[in-house]
Design a protein around this nucleic acid. Structure first.
Lengths: 143, 143
DNA sequence: ATCATTAATAGTAACTGTTACTAATATAGC
DNA sequence: GCTATATTAGTAACAGTTACTATTAATGAT
């Protein structure tokens, strides 16, 4: 883990993030880690998530909204966010390596990366719609 | 403008956003509008940007980073952010309408939209690099 | 031009999400 | 076990944003 010391807080933070598939915010992860380390500090969780992202152990998601999210899966891949319940899932979609080159040719920037995120309705919310429940749209309110 | 009253503050906020091509944050726009309305309140700028976005008069950009950005150009189009100087430009790149359908077929979500943003080096920073100046990377520090 | 209604404003307080500070503690290497 | 130092908990501070309320301005009718 590079130059980072092997503290129990850091290990538990990483273990829980690896276990989660929900790309949690720092606050959401903090609530989970607190069950195992009751005296852990929110600042410790924030700091460790940043450190682990800087060390490429995890990935920080620069997604829509004002909260940072984190992902234990560090390879290039896309995400999808449910506009009903707000859940963020991985999307098994081929990575579009050619996009950067195409975009460089299209304009006058030298393109080095892209970020692509999808929005949709997850299977659970889709099945609720079919049943006829009137799910009130919750997320995608950026305020 | 829908049900919105035609106040001078609202008109100036919209005029300046239309004039700008930099997809400014609320604070950046506030500094510009204050030159024309010295007593305008930051809260007024925030509230009007949200109202204008809700009324589809402008577009709110859910881009990377913690600050909201706004764009007077409401049609579907992509943006590119310079990793050197932080500027955000429009990218003249064909809108990938088929992405949503491809993504729906790839997974179990019903995809309804996507957001795609590019990162690169703008012409100005590219030309500085060629001249040999050591530009220290500024943005893309999410802290 | 005036009036009544009501949306909108300025200024301020409060909130959310995040980061910095510092005394104390834990890790790592010897 | 000791020393150096990274890391922590708790707290303060910060950045970005939104809510509150007395006051003001826009609007439509007359």
């Amino acid at each position: 883990m590079g130059n980072l010391r092997d503290t129990s807080q850091r290990r538990v933070i990483l273990e829980e993030l690896v276990r989660l598939k929900t790309h949690p915010t720092a606050n959401e992860l903090y609530e989970i880690v607190r069950k195992r380390i009751p005296k852990i500090s929110l600042g410790t969780v924030y700091r460790n998530l940043e450190l682990l992202a800087e060390s490429k152990v995890i990935q920080k998601l620069d997604t829509a909204g004002t909260k940072k999210r984190f992902d234990a899966m560090t390879g290039d891949h896309y995400h999808v966010r449910c506009v009903k319940c707000g859940k963020v899932d991985d999307l098994d979609f081929p990575f579009l390596n050619s996009l950067n080159k195409s975009a460089t040719l299209a304009g006058n920037y030298e393109i080095i990366s892209h970020r692509l995120e999808f929005e949709g309705i997850c299977p659970e919310c889709r099945s609720q719609r079919l049943v006829g429940k009137n799910c009130v749209e919750r997320e995608s309110n950026s305020g």
